[in-house]
Design a protein around this nucleic acid. Structure first.
Lengths: 149, 149
DNA sequence: CTTATCAATGATAATCATTTTCATTGAATC
DNA sequence: GATTCAATGAAAATGATTATCATTGATAAG
């Protein structure tokens, strides 16, 4: 995991961005919480514990920067704010989301769902696909049990 | 298409919602623009031409209402506002989106992409899928030609 | 048809996430 | 160590959406 941290920091430096303690803290925290889908506000609350002087605008700016570098992917689960996840997980094994309509929990699901379909789309429409995102809406295991039990 | 209009208005009445001229106008307009993905603001500008007194809040409230009745589906293309599309199209033939990263255009693509996969998910995770949504990000035909030409 | 009721409306204010502004700070370079 | 300009924090501004509230009007009862 320290490897992931170094790779991201190197990437920032390679692009002539300065390595500030705030950026380092934010990237470290994102790696610590790589299983979650943090919003800017979530992340702000967490990093504030280690650096109480950090500003919310810096968190927003850093998230935007990391998304523009494709380190993060911005996702929207319809709860009124943008959330972010590390692109790494997604790039190496297709990563999708199961969104519970009852309790709102989001769980990941990894599977190469769309196999050769991207080529079919290109052939049929001329649209060159770079990435895809699949969301499933339904009821999670726990909520189903709660409803039945 | 008048059939679609009547069905939606009946659905509203069946649920004890009142048939106001504003709601009728909004539903008519949504059907007229069924190929587009209108935002609340887009729709407001359009209906204002026929009823200059209509309020923006009414447009928002009606869109929420229609989405809660599953007449509309709320979609997010990352441009800072929610957009809506008629659920009907989606229900009868799977409808997905190709989003151009260059010009932002959104085109539809109909195909039953995920066949029996929803059952696989349920078996493996206990998550009961009601609906799914697929977005493809890439470069559309026109932008590719512009880039090459 | 008239009346009564209460949901729906329009105008406006409030809210909430996000972006911008701007003076100050500090990371990278010499 | 001095210089430079990108990055920061605080605060104001923005933009989409939601809530408030007095008024209106669709519907149901008489």
């Amino acid at each position: 995991m320290g490897e992931g941290l170094q790779r991201i920091l190197d990437h920032l430096r390679d692009c002539q961005y300065r390595l500030t303690p705030q950026r380092r803290l934010i990237v470290e925290t994102l790696l610590d919480y790589s299983q979650d889908h943090l919003s800017a506000e979530d992340l702000y609350r967490i990093v504030k514990r280690r650096d109480p002087a950090i500003g919310l605008a810096t968190v927003y700016r850093t998230l935007d920067l990391l998304a523009s570098l494709a380190v993060l992917t911005k996702v929207n689960f319809g709860d009124g704010c943008s959330r972010f996840e590390l692109s790494a997980a997604k790039r190496y094994h297709h990563h999708h989301h199961l969104i519970c309509e009852a309790c709102g929990v989001v769980q990941g699901f990894d599977e190469d769902l769309l196999g050769g379909l991207e080529r079919t789309i290109e052939r049929r429409t001329g649209f060159r696909v770079h990435d895809h995102e699949v969301k499933f809406y339904g009821i999670c295991h726990q909520c189903r049990q709660a409803a039945e039990g």
